[in-house]
Design a protein around this nucleic acid. Structure first.
Length: 577
DNA sequence: GCCGTTTTCGGCCCGACTGTTTTCAGTCG
């Protein structure tokens, strides 16, 4: 029986939705499956276990039919309904959904009328005239399809948050400086701090929308104009990133900002709430029978619905609306509240800068302490330190620290967790350090149970202060290794082990979806840049945004403590922390 | 397929743009 995971349940429900769309089923039925996938993805707790035990009653969005199907899936690893559905279409047909401009209706037409079931076949068919002659298709459509095929081949369709941020801010600044622009913002998943993005959604308030869409499509980075109207434009930049612009009036701006920030799920929930209060909410304004609330800023929209303003990072329909309604939203951590950080490298292992350079840069960032955690000896690819070199580094740090008054380097190690969960250094040596980050750097492919036990054994070590990059994922490149996150979080709570929020844009690990659960079990995080150079201390900004996305408050973040507090905390035995 | 202080049927968020159409369907967000 195939391994059943949360992801596999989500994936099956999403695929069913796609298949139903292809069959031209009732769109609301399709939506029910897609919504079900969302609920399973976001469910806090052991959804797989509950499904397998047929204990899914009472979960909103999972009705009788989905309960049955999830139970069958989780308990047998298969779903007959899904197998039958899937047998109706060739598997390669799904590729066509990756092409921009092709949706279920057009794909079904291509398949039914011309037997096209793969991108390759589609490309060939575009050379001839048969597609252009199909009803609903034309010469322009063929041209667009060919363009989309080329785009798909050339670019992955997602980008890492940290990679687009500098460009995003540059483009926003350019819009802001335009004399006809009153207000401007980037909405969408960028504003929500999603770890990867499909596009950037720019928004401007202006009296001259057409002038702005023209200005936007004329940006030098623009390689292709996908669409351009009087109030909306869509372009692809030379790096493959899609950018959209909406130009609205100043009065409409708060509504547009709210609407285009999303998430879609958050907005659907918000609109339903508005309807219950007799108000219809769209991207321009409120409409309704009674008094229409006055709105000047985005916050006024939430106030009108009797909600506290919800930080964009939280807008994923994961309980934020209920919390806002109950005035129970968390006071989210801020970048400026960080006083230090723990996981950083120097030239001793694979970093680019010396201890002194890293210390100076940290002080320029306003930090009171910087933890040095170079690799240990098993990470020979990263020039990991052996026992002798680590002892030397501890001495060097002592000497350097003598020069500082209100700042300190902390002696640590990013010690390798070996295959069996033991550590790369003996406890005697680890005891000499101020702290220790334990991470996995090899043997990524153990089965979930072994991998989980490996991490648990490391956490049970009294010298392990925190776990580094828990799942080892590299966004858009390498999947997380198989670990049971529920068990990891429970063990972190029991053993008082901190879990790192690794801020490297490629990692952003642990995933933001787990932090709410972790903090509710009193698990602390440390927002760590994993800096391999002084420039990479900037990564802290991404970490702070992802921590906010995970509902974390100042008190949930270890490195919000001052230097003296941290020194006292580190001296406590682990069990007393 | 889901849901319910308008509850077991009948709704389910909605607007912009494009291309093919001659009044609108499909796609996207």
């Amino acid at each position: 029986m195939a391994d059943v995971t949360r992801e596999s349940l989500v994936h099956t429900l999403e695929e069913i939705a796609l298949l139903l769309e292809l069959k031209g089923e009732n769109p609301f039925k399709t939506r029910a499956y897609r919504n079900g996938a969302e609920v399973v993805q976001n469910f806090e707790g052991d959804i797989v276990g509950r499904a397998a035990a047929d204990e899914l009653k009472g979960i909103k969005g999972i009705g009788n039919a989905l309960q049955q199907k999830l139970y069958e899936l989780a308990s047998t690893g298969k779903l007959e309904y899904f197998e039958d559905l899937r047998a109706e279409f060739p598997p390669t047909l799904f590729e066509l959904f990756e092409l921009q401009g092709l949706g279920p209706k057009k794909i079904k037409a291509l398949y039914d009328k011309l037997g096209i079931s793969s991108v390759n076949e589609l490309k060939k068919a575009c050379q001839g005239s048969e597609i252009a002659n199909l009803s609903g298709f034309g010469a322009k459509t063929v041209e667009k399809i060919l363009g989309a095929i080329e785009t798909r081949a050339k670019f992955a369709d997602r980008f890492r948050l940290g990679e687009v941020t500098p460009l995003a801010e540059t483009l926003l600044e350019r819009l802001r400086e335009h004399p006809k622009v009153n207000r401007s913002a980037i909405a969408g998943s960028y504003r929500r701090a999603k770890e990867t993005l499909h596009d950037l959604d720019f928004l401007v308030a202006t009296k001259e929308p057409a002038e702005l869409t023209k200005f936007f499509t004329d940006f030098p980075e623009v390689q292709e104009v996908i669409a351009q109207g009087d109030t909306k434009a869509s372009v692809r930049l030379d790096n493959g990133l899609q950018c959209d612009l909406r130009a609205v009036s100043n009065d409409h701006f708060p509504f547009a900002l709210q609407y285009f920030t999303g998430s879609k799920e958050h907005n659907v929930a918000l609109r339903s709430l508005a309807l219950k209060k007799g108000l219809s909410l769209n991207e321009y304004d409120f409409t309704g029978e009674g008094d229409i609330p006055k709105v000047e800023e985005e916050v006024d929209i939430y106030r009108a619905l009797k909600l506290d303003w919800i930080a964009p990072e939280l807008r994923e329909n994961r309980g934020e609306i209920e919390a806002a309604c109950a005035a129970d939203l968390p006071d989210l951590v801020k970048l400026t509240q960080l006083r230090g950080t723990f996981h950083n490298h120097t030239i001793a292992s694979d970093g680019k800068n010396t201890l002194e350079e890293m210390a100076t840069a940290a002080q320029e960032h306003g930090l009171q302490y910087l933890g040095i955690a170079d690799h240990s000896k098993s990470s020979f690819q990263a020039n990991g330190l052996n026992e002798t070199r680590l002892v030397q580094q501890i001495e060097e740090i002592k000497i350097i620290n003598a020069h500082f008054e209100d700042f300190a380097l902390l002696s640590g190690s990013e010690v390798d967790i070996l295959k069996d969960g033991s550590l790369d250094f003996h406890n005697d040596l680890l005891a000499e350090l101020d702290y220790c980050v334990a991470s996995i750097h090899n043997v990524f492919n153990l089965p979930e149970k072994e991998m989980t036990n490996r991490l648990i054994r490391a956490m049970e070590n009294e010298h392990v202060t925190m776990l580094g990059h828990v799942t080892g994922r590299l966004l858009l490149k390498r999947d997380p290794y198989a670990v049971n996150m529920e068990k990891i979080i429970d063990c972190a709570a029991e053993t008082k082990t901190v879990i790192e929020l690794n801020c490297n844009p490629w990692r952003l690990d642990m995933d933001w979806r787990w932090w709410h659960r972790a903090r509710d079990k009193n698990v602390l995080t440390s927002i760590n840049p994993d800096a391999h150079s002084i420039e990479q201390l900037q990564f802290l900004a991404y970490g702070a945004r992802l921590a906010r996305k995970g509902w974390l408050r100042r008190k949930d973040v270890l490195n919000c403590h001052s230097l003296s507090e941290i020194q006292a905390w580190l001296r406590l035995p682990k069990s007393k922390r």
